[in-house]
């Protein structure tokens, strides 16, 4: 391990992380999203009472990386598992970390009803417009015309339907306390994403209902792009279709000052 003199130290592993190299592909923004969650949990001093729920998908091994208790849910069922945990231990901090196939396709029932019930859980939702773990198939969030291994000629909305804007949809539910979309394509947006993640966990701790942060993310390997091009793709193609913004800011959540 390289040691750095303390006065030169500007960046280190957050306490919320275990000392485990991640399995994510080069250029993928999962690592960034993980780090933001770990930093927020550390800064809030809640690592000790947090239980994470990992999905099925690229983040299936998320439980290896966080310095908290963790469980691993069946595909799409993380919000239901999180509900079971939170309901019997309401004083704990419970979050799910889910991709777009997991949350917006097979797990659509679970996420909608967790939000409708106003479950006091926090959901980190990674939207990278494809199924990463299984090798880049079309997801509910795949853009019109976008080529994937299961839409080889580009997503044809006539036969394969339209992308789902999850944050907008969930924002219509009264149980949702805080639902926002952010992006991880540049440092400014990463900082905004971190702030949103902090507000989401604060929403949970204050009992203000369901909170979700959707993060537009890259998947350079399955998109067949260099990492920098993938970041550009998010900015130029994904943000216009999935506009960034606060879709549900309940009166309580609006009071949260970071």
């Amino acid at each position: 391990m390289v040691t750095t003199a303390p006065n030169n130290l500007v960046y280190e592993r957050p306490e919320g992380f275990t000392d485990t190299p991640t399995h994510y592909c080069p250029g993928c923004t999962h690592g960034v999203a993980h780090r933001l969650v770990a930093e927020v949990l550390e800064e809030m001093g809640v690592l000790d009472k947090t239980i994470g729920v990992a999905p099925v998908g690229c983040a299936v091994f998320a439980y290896n990386y966080f310095e908290t208790d963790f469980v691993e849910a069946p595909h799409g069922r993380a919000p239901a598992m999180a509900t079971g945990i939170k309901r019997v231990m309401p004083e704990r901090v419970v979050f799910t970390y889910q991709g777009d196939g997991d949350l917006a396709s097979i797990g659509m029932g679970e996420i909608v009803h967790a939000a409708a019930r106003g479950e006091n859980i926090t959901v980190i939702f990674i939207n990278n417009a494809n199924y990463g773990m299984t090798g880049g198939q079309m997801a509910p969030t795949t853009l019109p015309g976008m080529k994937t291994t299961s839409s080889p000629n580009g997503r044809d909305v006539e036969t394969q339907g339209y992308p789902i804007r999850v944050s907008e949809m969930l924002s219509t539910l009264d149980g949702a306390g805080y639902v926002v979309r952010r992006s991880l394509h540049d440092p400014k947006n990463i900082r905004l994403a971190k702030k949103a993640i902090r507000i989401a966990f604060e929403t949970q701790i204050r009992g203000l209902g369901f909170s979700l942060v959707e993060l537009l993310s890259t998947c350079p390997v399955n998109w067949n792009m260099k990492p920098v091009d993938a970041l550009k793709f998010v900015e130029e193609k994904m943000v216009p279709y999935f506009p960034l913004g606060d879709y549900k800011l309940s009166a309580g959540a609006a009071q949260i000052k970071i």
Partner: peptide, 13 residues
Amino acid sequence: LGAINMVYGAACA
């Protein structure tokens, strides 16, 4: 599906 996975979560606790 929701019910059994809520059971799963609470059982983990």
